[in-house]
């Protein structure tokens, strides 16, 4: 595997793990990390989170990743663990570029 891809994957794995661990601790999930798939939906039938949990997710983004989300943000980043990870990575990349 070329190192570029490798480091992108490592970065993503790291973010996914931190997101999953954060979800487990903060939202009292019974699962362990490898029981939560990357494409797991956060709401609905997936992890069955609700609107109150969504506010806890915002606190997590702030505390764990230093990301503040404005209310006008497109809500789709909260769709699944994976979309949340993509959102975090894109924000981190943006910050690094600045």
């Amino acid at each position: 595997m070329e190192s570029d891809l490798e480091s992108t994957i490592e970065q993503r794995k790291d973010v996914l793990r931190r997101v999953k661990e954060g979800l487990i601790v903060r939202l009292n999930l019974y699962q362990i990390v490898n029981q939560i798939d990357d494409d797991t939906p956060l709401f609905g039938s997936g992890l069955k989170l609700d609107s109150v949990d969504a506010t806890e997710l915002l606190v997590m983004l702030d505390e764990e990743f230093g990301i503040q989300v404005s209310e006008s943000e497109d809500p789709f980043y909260l769709r699944s663990v994976n979309s949340l990870a993509s959102f975090i990575i894109s924000r981190q990349t943006k910050t690094n570029k600045n």
Binding site: R26, L27, N28, V52, D53, T55, E56, V59, D62, E63
Partner: peptide
């Protein structure tokens, strides 16, 4: 400002 909303209620 980072109070746990999960435990608040």
């Amino acid at each position: 400002r980072r109070a746990r909303t999960f435990e608040f209620p």
